[in-house]
Design a protein around this nucleic acid. Structure first.
Lengths: 210, 210
DNA sequence: ACATTATGAATGAACG
DNA sequence: CGTTCATTCATAATGT
């Protein structure tokens, strides 16, 4: 483990209260010199436990990502205009992204594999290979790959039940509510071809306007 | 860079097709000479423009659904839905991607059902019924209902875990919304008892952290 | 108008 | 695997 990072935890802005100077998160942070003083029973409040867990998770992820990053050291994803998984080891800031977000490249590759594989779950060895390959495009773990395929399959299948919505959702409502709109001719067909709007969620699909 | 993965782009018909502009749904929705005079410039009122936008979106969505319905076999847009989705016609710019907004009636009913059901997720059949029922008060889809309940539950629960945070640094307000989020369900036992983070479920036991 | 908040929707992760 | 939870993103609403 990346034990040296233990210090950062204490300085987390989230809460520096508990500082069980013990190991990282392996053993007994509940006993001993906690916030409850010596000899006190391991009685943490619900909230405190929550916090603790959170930090543990954060740290776990941090470590994981450090390893991953180290391995994939070079590739620099677009990072999509949002805060990437920045974390300053000295800035005592736990801005760890707790959830993996595939980069564009990764997504494309995954998508491709998915299609090609006819929804077969890559399982085990393949996943390993894929993950390794994809790690060149950014941090990723085998678990990520696994989950991605699981979700992809499930949700793809789920979307095979759109039969009626299209006939009712937007159509009638639109013209019923607001009066004054006559539909002017829409010049280009671009209108109909240039969008990739809605997703059909798990249940059914269709967004609409009210 | 997606190296030698071949060119499957031909197989990515995410939004290539249905530019038919007419066809099934394209024909008579957009008929006639609307508020534009013949050859005149766009002289529409704000309200009218709004209305137009909505309708266009509606049709866009409608068309998409129909297409998907028709060819319920292809994977869908790999793009990460952050497409600007703005198309212009006749100099007007439509930035659309609207989202459903429940009407007062719908909201009330939903709220009532939520309480009555004790946060139980209506799932599937019930959702269907609810959606159908609510559609009489305005446009709505099953997906909307589903999402509403999901969000409702999640956010209700989250509100319950605001018990601490005010106890320490007064004025040190963590960002209002998501700070005290619940952590990503770590089955505490796992985390607390082992030093390796929960990784790949059952497919792979190998971890990424040393 | 722009900043903030509320909330609909998308999706990674986990459960049974 | 199908379902559900948790987290994040984007935008309608609302406030200043």
């Amino acid at each position: 483990m990346v034990d040296a990072k233990g210090q950062d935890m204490e300085a987390s802005p989230l809460q520096q209260s508990y500082r069980n100077g013990s190991g990282v998160y392996g053993e007994n942070y509940l006993n001993g010199s906690g916030i409850y003083g010596l000899g006190a029973e391991p009685v943490m409040t619900e909230a405190q436990i929550e916090q603790l867990k959170k930090q543990i998770v954060a740290y776990t992820i941090l470590s994981e990502q450090l390893v991953e990053m180290y391995r994939a050291a070079s590739v620099q994803a677009p990072l999509r205009y949002h805060d990437p998984l920045l974390f300053s080891s000295a800035g005592l800031k736990f801005t760890t992204r707790q959830r993996w977000t595939p980069t564009q490249e990764q997504l494309q590759v995954l998508e491709k594999i998915f299609e090609k594989g006819r929804s077969t779950t890559p399982s085990r060895d393949e996943i390993k290979v894929i993950a390794t390959e994809l790690s060149r495009h950014g941090a990723i773990t085998e678990a990520n790959v696994y989950h991605w395929f699981q979700n992809k399959k499930a949700r793809t299948k789920r979307k095979k039940s759109n039969l009626d919505k299209a006939t009712r959702a937007p159509g009638n409502k639109i013209s019923s509510e607001n009066s004054s709109a006559v539909l002017p001719t829409i010049p280009e067909d671009d209108v109909l071809s240039s969008s990739t709007p809605p997703m059909i969620p798990e249940e059914d699909g269709s967004n609409n306007i009210s």
